[in-house]
Write a protein that binds this DNA or RNA. Sequence first.
DNA 1: AACCGTATCAACCGCCTACTG
DNA 2: TCAGTAGGCGGTTGATACGGT
Length: 326
Amino acid sequence: MGRSPVPPSSNESNLKKGAWTTEEDQQLINYIQNHGHGSWRSLPKLAGLNRCGKSCRLRWTNYLRPDIKRGKFSQEEENMILHLHSILGNKWSTIATRLPGRTDNEIKNYWNTHMKKKLLQSGIDPKTHQPRTDLFSCIPQLLVLANIKELLEHNQLAQNLQYFNHFLQPNTGLSTLVNRTSSIPLFQEENLNFLSEFPVLEDDQESEEIRQFPVGTSNVTQPLHQEVSIMNLETSNDFKHVGHCQGQSAFTSDVNSSPSISAVTWNPIPPLIDNTTTTTTNNSGSHESGSTISYSGGDGGASSYNWPEFLFEDSFKLDQALLEMS
DNA sequence: AACCGTATCAACCGCCTACTG
DNA sequence: TCAGTAGGCGGTTGATACGGT
């Protein structure tokens, strides 16, 4: 398919490559403003440029065109790129048509240097836009499990886990949820056999330590070897602070589509980097509009990163379901 | 000040597709 | 139908900027 690459002629091999000078830019601008670009192949000769037509076209479309927007991408543009990429994949030119003033090259660069990284850090595969399932993405979970095991061995969280185990007993809210969801590998009872050696406490046997455990404080960026706030499970209102849940389905073109709760994967361990400062429910349990996650960028101060609403819909629905059950 | 590692992005390369004769 | 061509696209590279030590 397609033509095979044409070897450069002696003339073409003498053509200049690399960065454009301001003089060359001005020559190209002047020519196109006066004559239009016409045939790109013949343009360089007509414009007096020692460049190939392809290079001229690229310089014009990606840099010199007067309608190009410069500067940082706005939040709306980021959201649009994320959404379109989830539908179109790496169709940069198609994505660029929906972002006036932005070139495909610019969007591609922005994706590769900023957005891809952020998705990876939040445990989302930038290709599929779904939670990562490869071994590396499981490392945080494995580390936390190792941490739990270590804590168990030192008997520091024994009582907390007793309480946690209680939650998994039949007819408790969490066990009901477990039965209703299809993919909860870390919460399934067979994976929690190590808990069974602890007797189940009665409700009124909660330790003072459990009662006094601070609820609602969330700081998942702390090192994984610090304590895991399992006791935040104490109330359903705070359930969301312990882990995160993500939709199984790929994003659809319909931003407003709402996957059912059966499509939700509950992941008890927070993402590797997730400075979740968002509050999706207020004290009365009602949903607040707008979902903002702030990420501490590696390149300086914390940068606020707003994700589209549909990224949080499953989480929101799970919160609601838990409220209903409680 | 010098060095080094990382991030950024303009530019290039090779391939593909649409068009034309 | 086919071969040649131009334009376009996505992946990759490399020069430069920047920040940390």
